[in-house]
Amino acid sequence: MTRFTATSVLFAAVALTAVAGCASTQKHESTGQYIDDTAITTSVKAAIFNDPSLKSAEINVETYKGRVQLSGFVSSREKIERAVTVAQAVNGVTSVANDMRVK
């Protein structure tokens, strides 16, 4: 019986360590959040690419916990505003940080 108890305690400790290792903190994403952010980044890039007034090669997109950061250079203030509007319309985006510059 003691061998069963020791094995059970060891299994519980390993399971708890694995679950805690995948949990998110303020500065680290969980695995699920990383996958979600990757999907959001891809969706925002696709939306920008499909907008005829924007050049996707000039706009960089990064996502962390649903917060999208746009950076790069565009030719006018209107294109900056359009890129922010397009990014905000993507499902899963919680906020958009605009670091784009007019060249």
Score class of each variant (00 low, 15 high):
E58N: 11
A47F: 05
K45R: 09
A47I: 03
M1K: 08
S75D: 10
F11P: 08
V68F: 02
A97W: 11
T5R: 13
V96S: 11
S71I: 05
G92E: 04
N91C: 06
R82V: 08
S8Q: 10
N98S: 07
V68G: 04
F49L: 15
A46N: 15
K45D: 06
V84L: 06
G32P: 05
S75P: 07
V14T: 03
G32R: 09
T63L: 00
T5P: 06
F11H: 12
A87G: 01
D37M: 00
K65Q: 09
T63A: 00
K55Q: 10
V61W: 07
V44M: 04
A13N: 07
S43I: 01
S56M: 11
V9S: 04
V93Y: 05
S43R: 11
V102L: 04
T31N: 12
Q69E: 11
M1P: 04
E81W: 02
S30R: 01
T85V: 12
R3V: 06
V19C: 13
T7A: 15
S71T: 12
N91A: 07
S53E: 15
S56A: 15
L16D: 06
S24E: 15
S76H: 00
T38S: 15
V61P: 01
V86Y: 02
I35S: 09
L70R: 02
T63K: 02
T17N: 02
N60T: 11
A20S: 13
K55G: 13
Q33M: 03
L54M: 11
Q33S: 03
A15H: 02
T38M: 06
T94W: 12
V102P: 01
K79E: 10
F11C: 09
F11A: 15
K55D: 15
R82E: 05
V9W: 00
N91Q: 12
A39V: 07
